[in-house]
Amino acid sequence: MPADPHDLAPIAGDSMAAPTRRRQTAGARRRRALRLRERLRTAALGAVSIIAFLGLWQAASSTHLDLFLRFDNIPAPSQVAVRAVAVVGSQSFLNDVLTSCDRVFLGFAIAALLAVPTGLVIGRYRIAHDLIFPLTELLRPVPAIAWVPISIMLWPTDWQSIVFITFLGAYFPILLNTLHGVRRIDPVLVLAARSLGASEGAIFREVYLPGALPAIFTGLAVGMGVGWVSVIAAEMISGQSGIGYFTWEAYSLIRYSDIVLGMVAIGLLGLVSSTAIRGLGRLAMPWIPAP
């Protein structure tokens, strides 16, 4: 047996994870080239269906197709594009977008700040679970949009009631995912922390929170999605501003191209938000290997 413990470092059969920076040059370059080609192929295939969709739509609208489905009032993609140039840069459109973002992010932030700690606590303590969870399960099946009339009566301003609807939409997915995240933590990790002298507070901070983080981020992504659904619906029903209101108003005022513009904007905003959450998740969880 080697007297110097440092001699133990390179151990045969146990060196799977040895750092291999040098090997990464030639092989890695070839692999990267292959991966690039594969990605181009994937992108090209995806483009085929998107272009076909736009082409068929363009054809249907410009010929005023009327075969059960009626395209006579549906604006063609080309008309939407022309309209987009005029509208997208305008102050009022920007205001609508910012108003909706404001509502979503506020409702979402409140939901996250309440749901994550609640989820951690009811995941950890049986008594908190038994106390709070039945109420949660009672309220959860009611879609956030169904709260619109009550919310309008409950809150002094439209703005507050729409934020509340958004909050409700985001709250439950975040809560449930956090709860499941806590439940899925290997109990041996809690024992390990305890035997290393961790207090109850430290176990929350160092074990439950990071252990539930992957599930929490899943909940945040879902919550953000439901938050957008809720805000758009609430604005369509009760708002006087926002991108949902813009879209509905376009219908009332027969500005049909604006409807599609509103839809595209909503889709893009949802995409940007969920990408941002995924990016935050990757930053917050460096131990999860990139997909």
Partner: peptide, 14 residues
């Protein structure tokens, strides 16, 4: 009292 467990018990996030 240091404890080493049968199953892997390292904190994956550390």
């Amino acid at each position: 009292r240091g404890m080493v467990f049968q199953q892997y018990s390292l904190f994956p996030w550390k």
